[in-house]
């Protein structure tokens, strides 16, 4: 039997918001250590990797490893029935055909239960190699979302150039060009407001704006986002999820034909 209780149910709602526009369906792999999800978008340009550790849940039990294939549009309908201050419990039997979502109000006066049919998804998992990235940037997630939104008005692609002086996001299109430069923060009161660059060597890479905008839907999960870049390999955009885990997005670069 599988059971996972999260007092901060709003976290699961935010997680779903962060992946539902990129993925139509995904397998939730549940084991003693926690829940993992890995899936590519339909175009196979990006990959979502979500980890929720069992010790981050308020109660967690997983007697046997199980994989729950879910249609994320259906899961979104169910999550809309959950109040932001409600407690979520996910439950399933071993070898399940369905998963149950139980939503409890904080005072326990109201309990809602929704049972969703599972799908058999024949999804391959990709092996993600350990990589020492040439540049790792930590910056406020709201600032990253804003830059992606602003620059995607001008063109389909965004160039991210990172050097020791700072990071430059730029784009060009029919109406003209735009760029945003961020300098590394010299002193800051709050670490989550800082721009921090760890650089081994400068990197310049080009990415499709529409995916970056999709990744930015994870902004409510964390005040900080980290971008990891190396020449000619996928970008990693990571949002930590409080004490429970992270969502990482991998995006294949655009490369000269």
């Amino acid at each position: 039997m599988f059971e996972a209780r999260l007092v901060q149910g709003a976290l699961l709602k935010k997680i779903l918001e962060a992946i539902k526009d990129l993925l139509t369906e995904a397998s939730w792999d549940c084991a003693q250590g926690g829940i993992q999800l890995q899936a590519m978008d339909n175009s196979h340009v990006s990959l979502v990797s979500l980890t929720l550790r069992s010790d981050g849940f308020d109660k967690y039990r997983c007697d046997r490893n199980l994989t729950m294939g879910m249609n994320l549009a259906s899961m979104t309908k169910i999550m809309k029935c959950c109040g932001n201050d409600e407690i979520i419990t996910m439950k399933a039997q071993d070898e399940p055909d369905t998963v149950t979502f139980m939503f409890e109000s904080k005072n326990g006066d109201k309990i809602s239960e929704y049972e969703m049919k599972l799908m058999n998804l024949d999804q391959d998992h990709l092996g993600i190699p350990e990589t020492d990235y040439a540049c790792v940037i930590k910056m406020p997630s709201g600032e990253f979302a804003r830059i992606c939104r602003d620059l995607s008005q001008f063109g389909e692609s965004m160039v991210i150039a990172c050097s020791k002086n700072g990071i430059k996001f730029s784009t060009s299109g029919d109406i003209g060009t735009g760029n945003v430069k961020l300098a590394q923060t010299s002193s800051v009161d709050k670490e989550e407001e800082a721009v921090i660059i760890e650089m081994q060597e400068p990197v310049t890479l080009t990415f499709a704006c529409k995916y970056l905008n999709n990744f930015a839907k994870a902004t409510p999960l964390s005040p900080v986002v980290s971008l990891s870049l190396s020449p000619d390999v996928p970008l990693v955009v990571e949002y930590k999820i409080e004490d429970i885990g992270y969502v990482r997005y991998y995006l294949a670069p655009k490369i000269e034909d």
Binding site: Y250, P253, I255, D257
Partner: peptide, 14 residues
């Protein structure tokens, strides 16, 4: 011009 690559060309299947 630059072409979009696929994520599976960077990460092998398990």
């Amino acid at each position: 011009s630059k072409g979009q690559t696929r994520i599976s060309s960077f990460f092998g299947r398990n």
